[in-house]
């Protein structure tokens, strides 16, 4: 009787399979399973009670969940677009610099080195209505004589969060687009110049198509980031006041870790993952389209 010998490819892949299973698959399966239970962290026995799709139904019917969902999509749309525009502008400016560009690139990356928690605290202080920098500056300049409630008013708080997100992450766009700009060939731009194209025309029809793939990669990466936005918002407003800035992950984080309702939090998490998937698929499609326009598809 011959002993079972697994195929060589399987043996070679086995360590990778084991590691992937341990760090990705098992937690995923466990959290997915727990979303069908009333699992509470403080009551481990609840992990074994099957309640079917109760948590999913509860989330689907929850006004708070869907408003947080909507707000997250809004933040994603506004923050990504603004970061992209600013990042593009920043990259174009830095690309023009001939002396000290390396130093500028390093300085540009500083905000990325800050922990989001620190960024949250920093902007919480800046926008504090009583002792904050912005209100003090506005009052000292005589632009207003009242304390503007930056982190209380729904729209202003949303604006403040967008500013904090932009400050910390515009550099991601700038760096990636700058890399794209370095890759733009000089010949077509010079040919366009000879043909009498305006700077706007050569940017619109030559430079931009070349950097579009880089923009879409940055958008895909940042969309995943913003869809999971938590730290900055948690510190600045904790989703409040009165749920005015509640995002998906501040809601899920509070449900899971403060209320200890892990089963329900996981159910909300799994519904939310669709958001990330939809945006990623959308940006990758755009990326492929942009690449095929440049004849790079395949």
């Amino acid at each position: 009787m011959s002993r079972f010998r697994p195929p060589a490819w399987f043996v070679l892949l086995l360590p990778a399979i084991i590691i992937l299973a341990a760090v990705v698959l098992i937690p995923l399966i466990l959290s997915f399973y727990s979303s069908f239970t009333p699992y509470k962290l403080t009551r481990p026995e609840t992990l074994y009670k099957w309640i079917g799709t109760f948590n999913y139904e509860k989330a689907m019917k929850s006004v708070h969940f869907w408003s947080a969902f909507g707000r997250t999509v809004l933040l994603l749309t506004v923050a990504l677009n603004l970061e992209m525009l600013l990042g593009l502008g920043l990259a174009l400016l830095v690309n023009k610099v001939t002396y000290g560009q390396r130093a500028l690139r390093t300085i540009m990356m500083f905000p990325m080195m800050f922990s989001p928690v620190l960024v949250g605290f920093q902007f919480k202080f800046i926008f504090n209505d009583n002792v904050g920098l912005v209100n003090n500056a506005l009052q000292s300049l005589g632009l207003t004589d009242r304390a503007i409630p930056w982190l209380v008013d729904g729209q202003l708080a949303f604006f403040s969060i967008v500013v904090a997100e932009m400050w910390s992450s515009t550099a991601v766009f700038a760096i990636l687009i700058l890399a794209g700009l370095f890759a733009v060939p000089r010949d077509p731009i010079e040919a366009a110049k000879v043909d009498g194209c305006t700077p706007w025309q050569s940017f619109r029809h030559i430079t931009l198509p070349y950097v579009m793939p880089f923009i879409y990669i940055a958008l895909a990466i940042r969309s995943l980031d913003v869809a999971r936005a938590y730290d900055i918002v948690q510190i600045m407003t904790n989703g409040g006041p009165a749920r005015r800035t509640e995002l998906l992950w501040t809601l899920i984080g509070r449900t899971g870790y403060v209320d200890a309702k892990m089963g329900y939090a996981n159910a909300m998490g799994y519904i939310s993952i669709f958001l990330a998937i939809i945006f990623t698929v959308y940006f990758f499609r755009k990326l492929n389209a942009a690449r095929s326009e440049l004849g790079m598809a395949g």
Binding site: V152, T237, A242
Partner: peptide
């Protein structure tokens, strides 16, 4: 009360009173 009071926790309150305002 300061308009931001709905976002205040203990530290903010302590600093607020200590600011003499």
């Amino acid at each position: 009360v300061p308009p931001g009071t709905t976002s205040y926790l203990w530290d903010d309150l302590g600093q607020g009173f200590a600011s003499g305002t």
